[in-house]
């Protein structure tokens, strides 16, 4: 088990979003966390990436409590990309990606040939080599997201947590980013955990789906086991038909109509 949440209790201030949740991430898998708005999936991802300290329970990285490890050492094995990150204006792609080397640098050694190679390789892998000198704000949404992923790659971790890496992207760019994630996984055996909104893409690109509702794991397993018509009703309060994706053979959700009564336990989107 690479990464594990054990009985974690998460929230902000006095508001508890996730209570007593258990989750284990196997090495070398791609996991997608899905669920309705406000179910706590981003909160969970932030806790897994030690961006949020649990109020109770613990997060274990390779069996050790993540909050007891030096944060810089964690940053050498675990990369986190928060949702919709912002960069200062005028920051170039190369400079952004170079900042991924931060955990490997010391105050007296700010740049090494190893850093240079890692940055160049990350730019190559995301297909951004030709745009290295361009400011981030001049790129398209898809390119920008690739640049951020490239930064996380330059960090050189084999464990990547991505919070909605496809938000604000059109369908073509969503597929582009997810193809990149799949490539990272297949080429280097990286373990990836990501929060995704699009269920059909999640089913297509993840080995494991974790469906959350109201701070709890409602179902976890292979996409075919998780994405069922019952679960759509239970978790998303949506009447839907689940058919086979004619391209990938994975489950494909076709929505029919929302279920009328919204039940207790729903929360407004915290990110609003």
């Amino acid at each position: 088990m690479r990464l594990q949440a054990a009985k974690v209790r998460l929230g902000y201030g006095e508001r508890v979003v996730v209570d007593g949740l258990d989750l284990g991430i196997e090495a070398g898998t791609v996991t997608a966390i899905i669920g309705p708005n406000g179910c706590g999936k981003s909160t969970l991802l932030r806790a897994l990436g030690r961006l949020l300290k649990p109020m109770g329970g613990e997060v274990l990285l390779d069996g050790k409590r993540i909050d007891r490890l030096p944060t810089r050492e964690v940053a050498k094995v675990l990369g986190v990309l928060p949702q919709a990150p912002t960069a200062p204006e005028g920051l170039t792609v190369a400079d952004l990606v170079a900042r991924g080397r931060h955990p490997h640098q010391t105050w007296y050694r700010q740049w090494s040939s190893g850093d240079e190679e890692a940055v160049a390789a990350a730019l190559e892998m995301t297909g951004l080599a030709d745009l290295a000198e361009r400011p981030l704000d001049e790129l398209s949404g898809g390119q920008r997201q690739r640049a951020w992923i490239s930064m996380a790659l330059a960090q050189g971790t084999d464990l990547l947590l991505l919070d909605e890496p496809t938000t604000f992207l059109d369908l073509a760019h969503q597929v582009e980013v997810l193809e990149l994630v799949r490539h990272l996984h297949r080429a280097a055996g990286r373990t990836v955990v990501m929060v995704l909104h699009d269920l059909n893409l999640a089913a297509r690109y993840a080995d494991t789906l974790v469906a959350m509702r109201a701070g709890r794991v409602a179902a976890a397993g292979a996409p075919r086991e998780v994405l069922t018509e019952e679960l759509m009703g239970e978790v998303f309060e949506l009447d839907a038909k689940v058919i086979e994706d004619p391209v990938a053979g994975t489950p494909l959700v076709v929505p029919i109509r929302p279920r009328p009564a919204r039940q207790e336990g729903d929360r407004p989107d915290q990110r609003a």
Binding site: L51, P70, T71, A75, H102
Partner: peptide, 23 residues
């Protein structure tokens, strides 16, 4: 001088900076 690298990380937002191992 000691602050410059940390500030670089911080200018990407607190979450990214924490993810990069910055206190």
């Amino acid at each position: 001088a000691a602050n410059a690298p940390g500030l670089n990380a911080l200018s990407l937002g607190e979450d990214v900076a924490r993810g990069l191992g910055q206190n």
